[in-house]
Design a protein around this nucleic acid. Structure first.
Lengths: 340, 340
DNA sequence: CACTGACTTTAGAGCGCTCTAATAACATTC
DNA sequence: GAATGTTATTAGAGCGCTCTAAAGTCAGTG
């Protein structure tokens, strides 16, 4: 297809300026809603811009202005609704600040995560929020190259990286305490694969078990519903004596475990009590009635956004860690399962 | 491991070039993995780039190259897991193509949606995928300004906008046929608010009801679990004679309806049979056992990505519509609910 | 040893915008 | 009506990169 260069070329500010009989700088001012443009010229510029179908090139404007007003946000996994809650929190937190989000999904793969972070940095995001990150602090710091970051749901010890999370250790403790109080003594924990840096819930569990003088019982799974269902089915197939209660890493794994129990004709909470973590909406539904530990996901997102905006407004200073207290939400999956 | 020099001004290609004793153009070639750079210079450039903590400015490179290799992807709502499936499909579809995703969430608000689309266009995304869009075709076309787009889950009649969807009308028909076959005659439909342009499922329902000579029964809700729960509770409170079966717009609304029934001591499927739509994982779980209509969300995403890549490779040509056949997935919420 | 041609490297003109500083235009004041 | 502000407008120098075309290299040829 041969056409004159001018024919198919997208409309630029220059074109609008020429057509409207003003300078490019004036058009720029109009596009940025500058108050120092006379009403007359403003109207004229807007009109011809519209007539020519002008669409500002934000790449160019960002390059020239050294300002992007954009936050890169990385999510661990879209399948876990807890991240939808975090998203809502972030959206709430940046509302009115004039910032935009740039979203990516890491899929619990450190390489994908780092690539996403690098992409944010290369596109000069003003800051990066990581709603779940499974890689190492060193890799993250080197990918960030000084861009401020806030890690959500995890505590990270790296320069210029703030953390906003719920006290996961305490969640583990709460779960065990709750089950212990109901009379359970054989309490198992289904965690996620050990290479992932999300170990605090397990540690809290182990700590509390030890405090109570109970024998811990660990089963390794992954973060998904399906995965933990399979893991649990394999476990049941081994014929190992059953625990009377299970604390799982999160609600999705709890559901998988419940499915496996269900398939084996075991009743919850009568045969086995279950307690999850995250307090996601579907699990909280009366249809499932899963007892869970609320980690205040939405608040986490809101708070992380707040920390980031502060950090951008006032760079430097020591890394901040904000830790929320988890909250036990008792529902059918443990209620009335007294074992004493 | 490398420490970024605490320079006020970020490191540019120019700096690397000077330090390495080569031209900026050479550095550019190295950064783009050009094969026409001698191994010696390549190594030297990479080394000093690393030493200086150089991070390429993708804004500048995109501006200069007129190429972004980026697809904007808009999601209707992160709370509905069907979009996580679509995401996976898109990721699969663009794998290996060298393209990146730029994600935004519309939250079923046409203004937010359009702003996101404009943002994609202004950042010169090569194409835009809309996984759910609630606005008008006119607004979309004008925001796109010629950028190719694919709408997923909806059929849109606009220039340069392709559509990839499941036959929603057919889904409505399938649902009614299934229920009718089980002997149900009083079949209600819970849809989503009427201003949303997602009416095909309802129309399919209405069509099938008419074919069977049955009286339709419509209840308006929204797209959420909570919303439909409330709507259903209000409905139950009115004392209107109950239908024996309900087809809901999607699985989330189905769950809300089930919760309301549950709260009123009504059994599913014995008192009321339920059938949803989308076939999301949690609803398919044995814990819920919701009969649903699979719309092949992941395949939708994959296919949309494919259409977009083709469109980018070969611009022009008439708008494409790809329509998949829905598939009925029978589970407990309707199974064995014979009303004959 | 000037002359290829294949391979490397570079100068320099953009990409489309913003920003600073200067200029123009127009009220005010004395 | 010259001096003084005030407010609008513009010229022009970047922003950090890519790209084209031209210029160097450096064998191998005849």
């Amino acid at each position: 297809m041969k056409q004159t260069p001018a024919a198919n070329r997208p409309v630029t500010m220059e074109d609008v300026a020429r057509e409207a009989g003003v300078s490019r700088a004036l058009v720029s001012l109009v596009m940025r809603d500058s108050p120092k443009v006379s009403p007359g010229k403003r109207a004229a510029v807007l009109e011809t811009a519209d007539a020519l179908g002008y669409s500002p090139n934000r790449l160019a404007s960002r390059l020239a202005s050294h300002r992007t007003k954009t936050l890169g946000v990385l999510f661990l996994d879209l399948h876990n609704p807890v991240f939808a809650d975090i998203y809502d929190g972030i959206a709430e937190g940046i509302e009115g600040s004039g910032n935009q989000m740039m979203v990516a999904v890491g899929s619990a793969d450190p390489r994908t995560e780092l690539e996403a972070v690098r992409s944010f940095v290369d596109l000069r995001a003003d800051g990066v929020l990581l709603a779940g990150y499974t890689g190492s602090e060193g890799d993250l710091a080197s990918a960030l190259r000084g861009t401020p970051a806030v890690v959500i749901t995890r505590e990270l010890d790296a320069d210029g990286v703030d953390s906003v999370l719920t006290d996961d250790f305490q969640s583990g403790v709460l779960a065990v305490e709750h089950l212990h109080e109901l009379g359970h003594r054989r309490i198992a924990h289904v965690d996620i694969s050990d290479w992932l840096p999300y170990t605090a819930r397990r540690e809290g569990y182990l700590h509390a078990m030890e405090q109570f003088g109970l024998e811990p019982m660990l089963v390794h799974s992954d973060m998904t519903e399906r995965g933990s269902r399979e893991v649990m089915e394999n476990f049941l197939a081994t014929g190992t004596p059953l625990p009377t209660a299970i604390f799982t890493h999160n609600d999705l794994t709890a559901m998988g475990v419940m499915e496996a129990l269900h398939a084996h004709g075991l009743a919850v909470p009568d045969d086995v009590a279950i307690i999850g973590c995250d307090n996601i909406e579907v699990a909280a539904s009366p249809l499932i009635g899963l007892t869970s530990i609320d980690q205040h996901a939405r608040e986490l997102g809101r708070s992380a956004a707040e920390v980031m905006l502060d950090r951008i407004a006032q760079p430097g200073g020591p890394a901040i860690t904000r830790k929320l207290e988890p909250a036990l939400m008792v529902r059918n999956s443990t209620a009335g399962s007294t074992k004493q």
